[in-house]
Design a protein around this nucleic acid. Structure first.
Length: 300
DNA sequence: AGGATAGCCTGCGGGC
DNA sequence: TGCCCGCAGGCTATCC
């Protein structure tokens, strides 16, 4: 469930705890959730130093659904939350230390501040940690497979990717190599906003429809970030705060309820191997492209 | 080669 | 009450 807006919310809530902080201890409690890589991408043994022990943290990057904590000397820790992962900043005396499925911890200290304990939890273990000697090594061996960040969704790029595929448009949106950051929730929401049927063949989308869709993606993700992300059950930011974006969902989780636009009953079915919800009245397949394709105005 | 599918893993809710 | 089943989900490996 952590998709781009949730991961961005974690990044923003984590940054005040980590920027300018020194990592005084790094502990891996479960070895198989972490992979360490050398500069060429080869696998090497994980150590506290590779998990940033002794490092001064300068910033946290995000690409799609992945985070990267960057140290002044270049050391880079990539974090993927999978579907149930959490990064929590707590007091070192906190009881949350004993939460089950805590796989790694970092003790960090900022100048003139009390120490903070950072926890990585991931009950379902679809997430994980990856260490690299530099941000370049991360890009080389991991982030190079990702498409542009979905916050920068661009009509021309989307159209180019769509034109070469007849997969349903929803499958294209979920493909992280096309656009990084969209998951099941925001795919459905963006398609609703763009009035596109999730089963629309990608190569039937006109440049105008791709423009509407890119706009809808950016709008959906930006609004969700402002709401702190969608908390269905587990999601929390680094301070333990849930997000309120669920209240703004038009379709996800609303099957059987009336469409917020036309009041028809929203339907649910499997598209691209994912439970999908849409309005059969508002969301149409695009007409097969013609010389005189109509512009479809984007109206929430 | 592109696209569909299986499998990973745990927690929770529904049905019996 | 307790058990079992199905489902949720991102991503990789594998198959067609």
């Amino acid at each position: 469930m952590p998709e781009l807006p949730e991961v961005e919310s974690v990044r923003r809530s984590l940054l005040p705890h980590l920027r300018g902080a020194t990592v005084t201890a790094a502990t891996l409690l479960r070895e198989d959730i972490c992979e360490s890589h050398n500069a060429r991408g080869g696998l090497i043994a994980t150590s506290p130093a590779r998990l940033l022990k002794g490092a001064l943290i300068t910033t946290i990057l995000r690409r799609g659904k992945q985070l990267a904590i960057i140290a002044e000397d270049g050391r880079t820790l990539c974090i993927h939350l999978g579907m149930s992962g959490q990064v929590l900043a707590v007091s070192p005396e906190s009881r949350e230390l004993s939460l089950p499925h805590t796989h790694a911890t970092w003790l960090v200290r900022r100048p003139n501040a009390n120490p903070t304990l950072i926890l990585f939890r991931d009950p379902r273990r679809f997430g994980g940690l990856w260490t690299f000697p530099s941000p370049e090594a991360l890009h080389l061996s991991r982030w190079n497979t990702l498409g542009p960040d979905a916050l920068d969704a661009d009509a021309a790029h989307l159209h180019a990717a769509a034109a070469s595929s007849n997969r349903p448009i929803k499958a294209l949106l979920l493909d992280q190599s096309v656009l990084a950051g969209i998951g099941n929730i925001y795919a459905d929401e963006a398609l609703f906003l763009a009035r596109l049927h999730p089963r629309s063949p990608s190569n039937h989308l006109s440049p105008e429809l791709c423009h509407s869709l890119a706009l809808a993606i950016r709008h959906t993700l930006t609004a969700a970030i402002q709401a702190g992300g969608s908390t269905l059950r587990d999601y929390r930011d680094a301070n333990g705060q849930p997000g309120t974006a669920v209240a703004t969902h038009h379709v996800y989780g609303r099957a059987g309820q009336p469409c917020t636009r036309c009041h028809f009953t929203l339907i649910s079915d499997t598209v691209a191997q994912r439970t999908s919800v849409w309005c059969s009245q508002c969301q149409q397949h695009p007409n097969v492209p013609t010389q005189t394709s109509r512009k479809t105005p984007l109206r929430p």
